Amino acid sequence: MVGKLTVITGPMYSGKTTELLSFVEIYNIGKKKTIVFKPSIDNRYGEDIVSTHTGFKVKAHKISKSIEILNHISNNIDAVFIDEVQFFDEELINVVRNLIFKGIDVYCAGLDISYLEKPFKTTANLLAIADEVIKKKAVCEKCGEHRATYSFKITQDDKEIDIGGKEKYIALCRECLKKIKVNKTL
């Protein structure tokens, strides 16, 4: 028996982590053995937790390199949950394949594109091998419609990997992003 891969993606504030943690809860209610991972680079809400922007959280193992995930896997694990996959190295794809072929279900959540509108390679590769893709949208910060698919950086530095929240990023729909690019103002 093989496992399945579900990838949850979309812009910031679209509920990716909320969806991921809801699957953790479903498995836990079903008395399944789960384990949650997060990248060590992301310490916004603490060192050993994955949390939504609204404060729902679960205990997690922080990982620097994808291969470290395998060190935490025992024979009785039913499902693995990985948050913020865009911050992991591309070896994550091989780690996920390994887990799936061991019969473990894997759920991954992460941004699909950077604020520069470039795909994150690790997320893109996971999307390519996924059994199920859940594409989330956020409420656009400008027009208020639930159609935002972009994370727009409002701070002036140009670092592509820059951990942050509302102090650095907003969600925008394509129409509002176009207006901002044309007018060059928020």
Rank of each mutant, 00 (worst) to 15 (best):
M1R: 04
M1N: 07
V2I: 15
L5K: 07
T6I: 07
T6S: 06
V7S: 07
V7F: 10
I8G: 10
T9I: 07
M12K: 04
S14M: 13
T17M: 10
T17S: 14
T18Q: 10
L21C: 14
V24E: 05
E25K: 02
I26H: 03
I26T: 08
I26L: 10
N28Y: 07
G30V: 09
K31W: 04
K33V: 14
V36Y: 04
K38T: 09
K38V: 02
P39R: 00
P39F: 03
I49M: 09
V50R: 05
S51T: 05
K59Y: 13
K59R: 15
H61V: 13
S64M: 15
K65R: 15
E68V: 01
L70E: 09
N71V: 00
H72Q: 09
N75K: 13
D78W: 08
A79R: 03
A79H: 05
A79K: 04
I82K: 12
I82H: 12
I82R: 12
D83P: 09
D83G: 04
D89H: 03
E90M: 01
I93R: 03
I93W: 00
V96C: 09
L99E: 04
I104H: 08
I104S: 14
D105F: 14
V106R: 10
C108L: 13
G110F: 09
D112F: 05
D112V: 01
S114M: 04
S114I: 09
Y115L: 11
K118D: 05
P119S: 04
K121P: 03
K121H: 01
T122S: 07
T123D: 08
T123P: 15
L126V: 13
L126P: 15
L126E: 10
L127P: 14
A128V: 08
I129P: 14
I129D: 11
D131V: 08
E132P: 08
V133I: 15
V133Y: 02
I134F: 14
K136D: 07
A138C: 07
A138L: 11
A138F: 06
V139S: 07
V139M: 13
C140L: 05
E141H: 12
E141N: 11
K142P: 02
C143A: 08
G144D: 14
H146Q: 09
H146W: 06
A148E: 06
T149W: 01
Y150R: 05
I154R: 05
I154G: 06
D157E: 11
D158R: 02
K159G: 04
K159W: 06
E160T: 06
I161W: 00
K168P: 10
I170P: 01
A171W: 00
A171S: 13
L172Q: 03
L172Y: 06
C173D: 14
E175W: 00
K178L: 15
K178S: 11
K178Y: 10
K179M: 15
V182L: 13
